[in-house]
């Protein structure tokens, strides 16, 4: 049995919504089949007031072993470093976060806000929000660069806005079943099993990407969304087209450009006004190129691919 505690800071509850939609395993399966004991969760917990405070203090004292501490949302530090803008159970949330992180075997940051600070930490960041161990690309965040949970692992970051329920449940199951040693983390402490490939990996529009056929308007089923509609699939690490959403689809499959929500720069990405869904160009060349591709190579490849594109690539092949 692994005790899990889940708290929310500067959050919209989107990751909770996502988690509660988990199917294989479901949130209930985690309890019944995988031995996860949910001590408390903002949407599921029964304790209120002093009872909740007592539970949290019991974790901090060690009377109740805390195996997994899950935090959703940013850590709010305003005003003036006090964290008073986000009080919870009688004190600033950040104080609970610090003390619970220090006693937990594993600390898991869920979603962009807990991972990098997310939307609340966008400039000018009035809530002085930070991610658990990052502030955007900067390592450190609220807990500091040297933080490690009692297991020895740093904060396990599962970004996304929201993160996919399977990313959450699979990591929780791995940790709860003693297989945390199998986890390898990347430079942003994201599990490599999910965040080494790109959003583009598995995208149904890859043939159109290869032949440089662009979608020019929303709703078109043919054409790649990268060239004109601002899709960040070739530059974003996520398995959104390998582990499908609702077991059905993904943003790009449905014609929605990837917004790059698993990367530290989300949601801003240095966008010019009006370019959220418009690929920014400089002298006609995309400002952000697919990861690992330089401008010269891109221009050469694109010219050749365009010349070689078959007729079918320009037509809508989807008839149903």
């Amino acid at each position: 049995m692994a005790n899990l505690l889940w708290l929310q800071g500067g959050a919209c509850s989107g990751n909770t919504m996502s988690f509660l939609n988990a199917e294989e395993p479901s949130a209930c399966d985690l309890v019944t089949d995988f031995g996860i004991n949910i001590l408390w969760h903002p949407s599921l917990g029964m304790e209120l007031g002093d009872n909740l405070k007592g539970l949290l203090q019991s974790c901090i004292s060690g009377a109740t072993p805390l195996d997994i501490f899950v935090f959703e949302g940013s850590v709010v530090n305003a005003p003036d470093g006090t964290g008073e803008w986000n009080r919870f159970a009688g004190r600033p949330m950040k104080d609970w976060v610090r003390e619970l992180s220090d006693v937990a075997q594993f600390v898991v940051a869920l979603g962009d806000c807990a991972t990098y600070g997310g939307i609340p930490a966008m400039a000018p960041n009035p809530s002085a929000s930070k991610g658990m161990q990052f502030l955007k690309r900067e390592h450190g965040g609220f807990l500091g660069t040297d933080f490690a949970a009692k297991s020895g692992l740093p904060v396990i970051n599962i970004p996304g806005c929201p993160c996919h329920p399977d990313w959450v449940t699979q990591i929780l199951v791995a940790v709860a079943s003693g297989r945390a040693g199998d986890l390898t983390l990347d430079e942003f402490q994201r599990p490599k099993t999910f965040f080494s490939s790109f959003t583009q990996t598995g995208c149904t529009r890859n043939m159109h990407f290869a032949y440089k056929v662009s979608a020019t308007e929303f709703g078109q089923r043919k054409g790649c969304l990268f060239y004109d509609l601002g899709c960040r699939g070739p530059m974003t690490h996520s398995p959104c087209n390998r582990i499908l959403w609702n077991r059905q689809s993904s943003k790009t499959r449905a014609g929605m450009p990837c917004l790059g929500c698993t990367e530290p720069e989300f949601p801003f990405f240095d966008l010019e006004p009006g370019t959220l869904f418009k690929t920014q160009t400089v002298m006609g060349v995309p400002k952000d190129l697919p990861t690992g591709v330089d401008k010269t190579g891109y221009v050469k490849l694109t010219g050749a691919a365009k010349a070689a594109s078959p007729q079918w690539a320009e037509e809508d092949m989807f008839v149903v």
Partner: peptide
């Protein structure tokens, strides 16, 4: 900057 290499150009 010829049409034939432009992203909006349909070759066929």
């Amino acid at each position: 900057q010829a049409c034939e290499t432009c992203m909006y150009y349909l070759v066929h």
